[in-house]
Design a protein around this nucleic acid. Sequence first.
DNA 1: GAGCTTCATACCAGATTGCTATATTATCTG
DNA 2: CAGATAATATAGCAATCTGGTATGAAGCTC
Lengths: 315, 315
Amino acid sequence: MKLDERHLIQLAAVVNAGGVSEGAELLGMTQPAVSRTLAILEKRLGEALFVKGRRPLRPTPFGRALADHGQAMLLSSRKASELVDNFREGRTGAVRVAGTQFFMDGLVSNLIADFHVARPDVRVIQSYGYMEELQSAIRADRVDLAICPVDVLDGDDLEFRSILPGRNVVACRVTHPLLMKRKLRGSEVLDYPWIAPPLNSPLQADMRALLLSFGSTGVSVPYVGGSLASAINYLKRTDALTILPHGVVFAYRKEREITALPLRVPHPERALGILKLAGSPQSPAIAAFTDFIIKGFGSLADLIKRHEQSVVWKA
Amino acid sequence: MKLDERHLIQLAAVVNAGGVSEGAELLGMTQPAVSRTLAILEKRLGEALFVKGRRPLRPTPFGRALADHGQAMLLSSRKASELVDNFREGRTGAVRVAGTQFFMDGLVSNLIADFHVARPDVRVIQSYGYMEELQSAIRADRVDLAICPVDVLDGDDLEFRSILPGRNVVACRVTHPLLMKRKLRGSEVLDYPWIAPPLNSPLQADMRALLLSFGSTGVSVPYVGGSLASAINYLKRTDALTILPHGVVFAYRKEREITALPLRVPHPERALGILKLAGSPQSPAIAAFTDFIIKGFGSLADLIKRHEQSVVWKA
DNA sequence: GAGCTTCATACCAGATTGCTATATTATCTG
DNA sequence: CAGATAATATAGCAATCTGGTATGAAGCTC
């Protein structure tokens, strides 16, 4: 016999609370409503659920057995409600974020860690890619948002929000000989080996432009294609140089192992930003994550600005 | 956020079955009904439950999580339905049965065992008592039915159904000397010690009447008050006699340890029967049990009748 | 792209919900 | 044991919701 789940839940509440009024209160309902439900249930079942005529309301064995199942449903229902609430406030859910390797590894991963302090139950699913791939990933709904440098955006279905000026620096270890010089000329960087960023990376082009501006005639590039962790490990142990986003080098300043040469590097035309589907409704968790990323980069930008005033950059 | 339990159940069914139509079928509903439920759910939650535009219907992670809770409710609901069905068909429930010691121990307990072959999940709660106690126990709803000898019934709120003629016999062990006699005179029973039934038992009065009819002048009664098991154990080991309901002795015939003397004993005015509240609705389990008892005693009566034709009773 | 299957929508009759107001019943108290 | 008190049951009502049929829209298969 099929019976209404809500009825069983009400029964459970009444049995638990020890009275119709209390049970109703427990459910946020009025007593008559619950009372009628019980009457209907008893009528349909043709069987008493409570010993009648006794005031401290006592369920029959049958009533109690039924109430047990109702209780299970009540608990499930509560949990479902909680799940929904958590989800709606972005405490639960999943964010699929993608981006270029160096930014994801150097900056975003830190922010994700911070994000999880407040929202540990939001799953972050990270992947890597460059502009075109990222765009198509977003359009195909394989990714919720991308964090990457963008110059031109084709199509108006995507929305780009800039979060950090596109600025690169020449990175080296803190004990690098060039840092000792009183006067550093740009061309001197050509005397050291260079690490090249991964193929297809926008940094690849940036590095070429940089070296050309210093009059490159064939620099030594003994290491290519490693991701950020590899590049940094290599930097730490050699006098090699490489090009990195300023923010990334900045984020590593605490470890006092790598730093940037005080050299002005030509600005690329791109800014780092967040790319997402324009105007599509997004889950609260994604919104919260996006927000957090924006704020995080905002304060990073502030930090960099303040830090900048104490450093003299040479041309 | 409060949401309708039924909706979650439908969601679970759809996720499980892998399609709206299949889910609807699973629940015995039509596809449009379920489809609308899902639409309502998504609208209220403001969140997709299924990735739209894909035909092998695939739930979003959120949808799946919600469906899990729905699944729990679905299971509970199924179990509740089953419970109700079992109950309504008397496969589940409880029967509170009371009766006089000798009948309960000697006959009814066997029937209960047989009853449980077909309905192992019906709990039988047995208690003992004599007429007055049994009547008030039934009226106070402490007992569902009583099995006892009844002569007069006061009040018409109780219903009595006779199930066995009220007939007693003189019981003894199968090796009793009196059984060897070709011609047994009633007065000879006075030469042996007698076991007296418990105080207040109707058998008490029956025994007194019996002994008087044989011209009692002070029989030896060395053992009083034991219940059936005690009396039978005692009988087995001595040449004592006692009065027992015929059916009880008959039930023990298979063990070939006690039997009845071929003596006619004056019939008491009572018949063994089932006593219950008149016209009150009773649970299916109780109905089934009552039925079983009636049938059980019916075939016992038949057996006794057939057996009787092969025994010669003396006066 | 035709045909098939599956899902979504529109509309309707009937059931159910929850409410307020009120009657009924059980328990407690003197 | 009557009267006070608290709890439960009942009645009536408006709004919602239910599930059904009929039908349109959209994916999949070949």
